[in-house]
């Protein structure tokens, strides 16, 4: 009599764990290089949008410049969309991609 309920509970727990893992996969906010936008403007936008210190904002800007793109923030989808919209509002070329599952 007690075996069945325990097995069912175990199965339910397994399912919930899988679901939570999928939901928790974070999103990357990516800024892409463009040949027009001023480097100083990009740095300024990073400081304004994320509140990053100048050194971090400059490092990310240089990564965009040298690598062609940079992951400027990683986290939950809703907040990632807020940041993407703010960056696009300043005309930085921005995209969102989900972090690959391991």
């Amino acid at each position: 009599m007690t075996v069945l309920p325990r097995a069912a509970t175990k199965e339910k727990t397994k399912t919930e764990t899988r679901t939570k893992t999928a939901v928790a996969r974070p999103w990357n906010v990516i800024v892409h290089d463009d040949p027009v936008t001023l480097m100083t403007y990009v740095t300024r936008v990073f400081i304004q949008v994320f509140g990053y210190p100048d050194s971090k904002a400059q490092r990310l800007m240089m990564e965009v410049h040298r690598e062609g793109r940079s992951i400027v923030w990683t986290g939950g989808r809703e907040q990632a969309e807020v940041y993407a919209q703010k960056l696009q509002a300043h005309h930085l070329k921005t995209s969102l991609e989900q972090v690959d599952a391991e």
Binding site: D34, P35, V36, T37, L38, Y41, R44, A89, H90, H91
Partner: peptide
């Protein structure tokens, strides 16, 4: 600042410019 940036980007694409 943002409007100037947008205008610069528009000029760039409208005139078939590259880096």
């Amino acid at each position: 600042l943002a409007s100037l940036n947008a205008a610069r980007l528009a000029l760039f694409v409208l005139n078939d410019l590259d880096a």
